[in-house]
Design a protein around this nucleic acid. Structure first.
Length: 232
DNA sequence: GCGACAG
DNA sequence: ATCTTGTCGC
């Protein structure tokens, strides 16, 4: 049927895009971005946002917000097709891009190595990291119950990512390289982005910010932040 | 065939 | 993802 045809095409495109993936070290990281999407149930309007923090201080420096219309449904394995178009629209509003962008979802920890972070990275030619709140694919071995404990996530003999305990007695997050960064550096960067919560600061801040945008407390466009924000 | 299944 | 109160555990 109609949906099957779209997902067949989407699958073929993911396989093609995955051939373009590159993994290398990112040098001199001083800024890191977080991207997220929010929307009301049963609405085709997505609220997209990207925040930029100083690294490793994790101080909010700027953010961009924009809405986007889409009918593409959520389906496990195809999140990029739903979220990346909206995120690219917000991305274009940012004059000074962050050195690395963290997306809420996976990078190469994906059946076709094309999670939302890899998908965005390829289309924007931007170093990206995927950080998901639950497992999508691969072995699910839990890390020890201590902060910073990790467990490799493999599929067959490929190292696709890491489960990372960001906080004691909390479920781990799942980290993988998106594009233009290595697996090990992705893990190190995310470790350095942990504040006092389970979710690393770039993603956590992005989530709070897009929610405020959806609820009408923040406006669309690019905004720079100078004094500490008393929003959280 | 059955179960799993990012956001 | 979003809608929501209380409640269990540290």
């Amino acid at each position: 049927m109609y949906d099957d045809y779209n997902f067949q095409q989407a699958t073929a495109l993911q396989i093609e895009l995955a051939k373009q993936l590159k993994f290398k070290l990112v040098e001199n990281v001083t800024t890191i971005g977080g991207a997220d999407i929010s929307f009301n149930k049963n609405s085709s309007t997505m609220f997209a946002g990207i925040v930029i923090l100083s690294y490793p201080e994790m101080v909010l420096k700027s953010y961009a917000l924009e809405t986007f219309e889409t009918d593409f449904p959520y389906k496990p394995g195809f999140l990029g097709f739903k979220e990346v178009p909206a995120l690219l629209k917000v991305w274009d509003l940012i004059p000074n891009k962050p050195d690395i962008l963290v997306l809420d979802g996976n990078g190469i920890l994906h059946p076709r190595r094309m999670g939302v972070a890899s998908h965005f990275g390829i289309l924007a030619n931007q170093p990206t990291i995927g950080c998901a709140k639950s497992i999508l694919y691969g072995d699910n071995h839990l890390p020890a119950n201590s902060k910073y404990a990790t467990a490799e996530i493999n599929s067959n003999s490929d190292l696709l990512g890491f489960a990372l305990r960001t906080k004691e007695k909390c479920k781990p997050v799942y980290v993988s390289a998106g594009h233009l960064i290595t697996q090990v550096q992705s893990l190190e960067i995310i470790k350095n982005c942990i504040g006092n919560y389970r979710i690393p600061e770039p993603t956590r801040n992005a989530h709070e910010t897009v929610n405020a945008f959806r609820l009408g407390d923040l406006k669309a466009g690019y905004h720079e932040v100078n004094q500490p924000l008393t929003l959280f």
